[in-house]
Every structure is written in C-alpha cells, then in structure tokens.
Computed example of a mutant assay.
Amino acid sequence: MSGEINFNGDLHARESLYLNHENRGLRYGDGLFETLRVIHGKIIFWEDHYLRLMASMRILRMEIPMSFTMEFLEEELLRTLRQNALIDKPARVRLSVFRNNGGLYTPLTNEISYIIETVALDAAFYQISDGRYEVELFKDFYLNSDMLSTLKTNNKILNVVGSIFAKENGYENCLLLNQDKQVAEALNGNIFLVKNGVIKTPPLKDGCLNGIIRKKVMEIVTKTEDYTLEETSISPFELQKADELFITNSVVGIRPITKYRKKEFERAVATQLLGKLNALARLT
C-alpha cells in the first residue's frame, strides 16, 4: 500500500521504519486510537472524536501537549489527507496516540507521540449492506465491565482472537459477553437490539465501547417518536427474539445483522436510522 503517514507532524513513507522495539504501544498496548470517516475534507463528528480522545488520555494519565487543540489536530489530519491525494475523496483515517518510549510498566514519561494513517473508502456516506451478515457469541473469553473497556485503547487482543474465531467458523462477526454473561458489544462496534418499537443498547457500565456512532444513534432514536430507547443490559436469550439486530461504528455507520443461529432478521429500522445518521453527518 503506497502513501505517507504522519508521525508527530513529519510525513514518512508508509513502509519506512519510524518506530523501534521500545515503542510502548507495541510493548504494553499503552496507546489509544480514533478511527474517523472523512468525506471530501470534512471529518465526520470530529468534535465528538476529539473530546473522547482527550477524556481517554486524561483517564490513562497521558500528558496532553498544549498544542493538541482541536484545530491543530484537524489540520494535521487534513494535511495528511492532502499529501495522500484523499482530500477530495471519501477516506478512513486512524489517529493513534501512545506514550513515549522508556520504562517498564511504569513509564519514564507521560509525554506522547501520534501517528495519522489514511486509506481511501468506496462510498462518501454510510450505506446499508444487502449482503449476508451472520454473527455468533464469542464465549472463549469475556470482556471486563469497567471503565478501561469503554476506551478505544490498543489492548484489543480479545477482538483479535474473536475475529479469528469468526473467520474460522464462517461468521462475519461475533458478539462479546462480559463476565456477567451479558451481551456487551460486537468485535468492531456497538450492538443495538430492536423489538416491538423498543431499541435497546447496553450501558457503558456493562463494558461496551463509548462509541461515537452509538451516541449519535441514541440521540436520533430519542428524537424519533416511533421508537423508545432503553440503555439496558441485553441477555443472550433476547437475541433470537429480536426483530432486528445491528452494529454501529464510525466507518460503516450501521450494519444490520441478518442471522444469529436459526433466527433471520429484518433491516427496516436500521435502514431508516441510517438515513437519519447520514443527514446528521451532513449537518456537522
């Protein structure tokens, strides 16, 4: 894959060796990241992503540079897109932040570095997929229902192992359970359940990611008279009784689940909400 990445403001060829073996993100997962969707130079829900990143850095006791303003980071993101000829195209951007080299578990410094990576996307706005999307529970390991699980950190080994399980068994995704055996999220996004006009999603206390699109969909549902939002724990036994299940994240927006075990699902609510999400994205 050609192109350039942005490391602390300096542009490097994507294949260049700009990190070394002491990188704390590699050694200890001591890092955070934001995955962003950009449409013709407009970063979708940028303020929400920025505020989540700042809050997460404070929770992990990272030192936030004085220069790390929303305007500064936005310009760095756009500069990297321009360098990769993606400023006028739909693109996916990953902004990674990690503590600087040094120390063992206890770092020598809380100062940070950042990396910006870009890749082209096919479609400008979110689209509903018409293809098969079958999921299963991943029960080999469980998600901890604590604040760290709600952050978008580099500690994603559960998601990696779960993704391998899904691939080996012919599933498009898996749903993760917390230690209380409640459905917390999907491998790559938040989970929503629709039943008789009620739309449920797990609360953050169950360990799910504090997702940006999760937040936006909840706002949309709250303002839609046809539906009632419930932020409540979801039992695995509820899944096969649902009218619809869908997953949300910042790249795909809303992904309807078509099948879980013997139950096949509709996608009418997901399609309606996606239209409202696209309208909201255009306004921000």
Rank of each mutant, 00 (worst) to 15 (best):
I220C: 07
I254N: 08
E111N: 15
L104G: 06
L108C: 11
F141Q: 11
R61L: 14
R92I: 09
E22T: 11
I257Y: 03
I213C: 01
L277V: 06
S2I: 10
R94I: 14
N144C: 06
T228A: 13
Y105H: 10
A123R: 10
L148S: 05
R261S: 14
K181T: 05
R255Y: 07
M57T: 11
I257N: 05
K276W: 07
F141H: 07
P107R: 09
D10Q: 14
G207D: 05
A85V: 09
F165E: 03
F192A: 02
N84T: 11
K205T: 13
Q272F: 06
L158T: 02
L104S: 06
I59Q: 09
L239C: 12
N100I: 07
E134P: 03
L36I: 06
F165P: 01
R52T: 06
A85P: 00
K89I: 03
A123N: 14
I213R: 02
L245W: 03
A270C: 09
I43K: 09
V160H: 02
F192R: 01
D30Q: 06
H12D: 02
L17E: 14
I164M: 01
G31D: 10
N188D: 04
A85E: 15
Y133K: 02
K241L: 15
G102T: 03
F237R: 08
G211V: 01
E231I: 15
K216Q: 15
P202H: 00
C174D: 00
N84Y: 09
G29H: 04
E117N: 10
I128F: 01
L81D: 12
L143G: 02
S56R: 08
L148C: 02
L277I: 05
G25A: 13
V217S: 01
G207C: 04
F45G: 11
F33A: 05
L245I: 14
I247M: 12
Y114A: 02
R24P: 04
I212H: 01
A186H: 00
V97R: 10
Y50K: 09
L280Q: 12
N188A: 12
T106Y: 13
F125W: 15
E185I: 05
K200S: 02
M54R: 15
N155I: 03
T271A: 11
K181V: 04
R24W: 08
I115E: 10
L239D: 13
T109I: 06
K139W: 01
F98K: 04
S113A: 08
K223R: 14
F141E: 10
K152R: 15
M147R: 13
V194R: 00
G31I: 11
I157P: 01
E136L: 01
L245S: 05
P90M: 05
I257A: 05
S163Y: 01
V135H: 05
D10F: 12
K263F: 10
A55W: 10
D130A: 13
L187N: 07
N196R: 03
E4P: 00
E136Q: 06
I44N: 11
L32H: 06
M1V: 08
L273A: 10
G207K: 04
H12S: 01
G162L: 00
F68Q: 06
Q272M: 08
V217L: 08
I5R: 11
P65A: 00
A184F: 02
R79I: 04
K262V: 13
R214K: 15
T35M: 08
L277K: 04
L77I: 15
L187G: 11
F98G: 04
